[in-house]
Design a protein around this nucleic acid. Sequence first.
DNA 1: GTCTATAACGAGATAGAC
DNA 2: GTCTATCTCGTTATAGAC
Lengths: 201, 201
Amino acid sequence: MDTAQRILDVAERLVQTQGFNGFSYADISAELDITKASLHYHFATKAALGSALITRYCAEFRHALQGVDVSAADAREKLRRYAGLYAEVLRQHRMCLCGMLAADYTTLPTLMRSGVKEFFDLNESWLAQIFEEGRKQGVLRFRGPPLDSARLLLGSLEGAMLVARSYGDPERFTSAAQRLLAEVSGSRKKRAGRTDRRLGR
Amino acid sequence: MDTAQRILDVAERLVQTQGFNGFSYADISAELDITKASLHYHFATKAALGSALITRYCAEFRHALQGVDVSAADAREKLRRYAGLYAEVLRQHRMCLCGMLAADYTTLPTLMRSGVKEFFDLNESWLAQIFEEGRKQGVLRFRGPPLDSARLLLGSLEGAMLVARSYGDPERFTSAAQRLLAEVSGSRKKRAGRTDRRLGR
DNA sequence: GTCTATAACGAGATAGAC
DNA sequence: GTCTATCTCGTTATAGAC
């Protein structure tokens, strides 16, 4: 497999678990049995490595969102799958890459800052589109502009991940996510024997 | 003023803006015109400094919550004030101390990890109490156990802060917080000329 | 592409004088 | 309590051989 990709794989996991200031080239070097000097051949600076991480993460996320678009039945189901993407990340004991970088934000090089915002923009515009679509189809009921709901959902899921990970308890996330989806999509039903719909896998 | 407190003040701001791995004793030293060696006199290790930060932050937060308890009229108003506490932190371009430390969680010494969870526990149990009180008084309507609502609100506010801070846009937070409070407290009204209730200050 | 070797610097921390 | 001086180690990054 491509060395650059293997480096990105390890670095990605390290950032998602320890933050951008919580790992070093030495950590990657140790895991891949490649010297630090070789790492610098592939990614000259840590800033370059970080930017590459974000670019790849955005591309993969875009792809995942397209997958949700084509496979989910309606807007409500798309939101469930979207939350499922986050749940899957958390299941690997990771934080969202850009959620983590948002914490490190003020210490990041300019290019990485832009990348983090691009990720959020990408998520917000996709979500806004889903909310708009769901409102039109009558499957989602919510107040205000779709973009507001999109931002609320994005921020809330990031925060739920952040806290849940500290407790090492993914169930904290899925519980919050389910409730959040119900609130934000305007479900009115008060069912006693409620079917516990799972988020993703 | 007490030197130890001045050190804590600077360190607190640095953690809230740059993360625990994003600042050093040298940074504090430069700001206070005190040598690094002197800092070590007050806080022997960075871990000790970190633990002291959390302890003080928890105490101050506990105090703030008591203030909300005695001054706010009803449960709904208490939640608004609670969100206002977060808004005030963000206005200073800071992240919640423990929200930030939650990102650094895996790299923290054990004592600090416990402290972060204590902070979250403190918030959750206070919020759960408010939700329970609000339900009893009939001013809040929500589904499920009060603790679930508490966790949802805590995580969502932390996440909204995290994202809003990246954009340097506190309005992103207040907007999300208002909507969140409406959803989580079960307001049903669809008002056209809605009074825009401010969060705090 | 990968290596050895090393530079240049900053980190957390300590010894001991004042 | 605060200082100077220093230690040790880890950090990002480079030079140059293979």
